[in-house]
Amino acid sequence: MKVIFLKDVKGKGKKGEIKNVPDGYARNFLFKKGLAIEATPANLKELE
């Protein structure tokens, strides 16, 4: 799953980066803790 990092996550990504991460990791950790959001076309446009 492609995500946009909202905060730095040690060993995974830095704020503003767009990366592919495992689906479970994104849903169960990154999204729940507010560390990242899904890289949807709308979210990507908002980032620019």
Rank of each mutant, 00 (worst) to 15 (best):
G13V: 06
L47D: 05
D8Y: 08
E17H: 04
A26Q: 04
R27K: 13
A39N: 03
A42F: 07
N43V: 11
A26N: 03
A42L: 09
D23L: 14
E38V: 07
G16V: 01
D8S: 09
N28S: 08
E46F: 12
E48L: 15
I37L: 10
L35S: 02
L44R: 06
V21R: 00
K33A: 12
L35R: 02
A36T: 00
G34D: 05
I37P: 00
K45I: 12
L35D: 02
P41R: 09
A36V: 05
A42G: 09
K19G: 08
G34S: 06
L44P: 04
K32D: 09
K33P: 02
P41F: 09
I37N: 02
K19Y: 07
K12W: 15
I18K: 02
K2H: 10
E38L: 10
E17R: 02
F29Q: 08
V3G: 00
K12P: 01
K45P: 06
K2I: 14
G24F: 13
Y25L: 08
N28L: 09
K10F: 14
F29P: 03
I4N: 01
L44F: 07
G34M: 11
L6S: 02
N43L: 10
A42T: 09
F29N: 08
L35P: 00
L35Y: 12
D23K: 13
T40Q: 04
G13I: 05
K7D: 06
E48W: 09
Y25R: 07
A42I: 12
L47S: 08
G24K: 11
V21A: 03
L30A: 01
F5A: 00
V3Y: 00
F31D: 04
V21T: 02
A36D: 00
E38Y: 05
L47P: 06
M1R: 08
L6P: 00
N20D: 13
L30Q: 01
L6I: 13
K12E: 10
I18D: 01
A26M: 08
L30H: 01
T40H: 07
I4M: 08
K10M: 13
L30W: 02
E46W: 15
G34H: 12
E48R: 11
V21Y: 06
N43Q: 09
P22R: 09
E48K: 12
A36Y: 00
K15V: 08
K7P: 00
G11D: 07
G16A: 03
G11V: 01
L47I: 12
N43A: 13
G24D: 15
I4F: 06
E48H: 14
T40V: 05
D8E: 08
I37T: 06
K2Y: 14
K10R: 14
L30D: 01
D23H: 12
V9K: 01
D23T: 15
F31S: 02
G13K: 01
K19H: 10
K2Q: 13
K10D: 10
E17S: 05
K19S: 07
A42D: 15
E48D: 12
K14R: 14
A36L: 01
Y25H: 04
L44V: 12
G34N: 11
P41A: 13
L47H: 11
N28R: 09
K33Y: 15
L35E: 02
I18E: 04
K7W: 10
V21H: 01
G24L: 13
E17N: 04
Y25V: 06
E17G: 02
A36S: 02
R27M: 10
F31I: 13
K33L: 15
K15A: 14
N20F: 15
F5Y: 07
I4K: 04
D23W: 12
V3M: 02
L6A: 02
M1V: 15
F31E: 05
L30Y: 03
L44K: 06
G34Q: 08
G13M: 04
T40E: 05
K14D: 06
F29W: 11
K32A: 14
P41K: 10
K2D: 12
L6Y: 03
M1A: 05
K10A: 13
F29A: 05
K14I: 09
K45N: 11
L44W: 07
K12V: 15
E38M: 09
I37Q: 07
P41D: 13
K15H: 05
Y25Q: 04
I18A: 04
K7S: 10
I4V: 11
A42E: 15
E48A: 14
F31G: 02
E46M: 14
D23M: 15
L35V: 04
L47M: 12
V3K: 00
G16Q: 03
I37M: 09
K10P: 15
L30G: 01
I18S: 03
K2V: 14
L44S: 05
G13A: 13
V21P: 00
N20A: 11
N43D: 07
V21M: 11
M1D: 02
K19A: 11
D23R: 13
A26F: 10
N43W: 07
F31M: 07
G16H: 08
D23N: 12
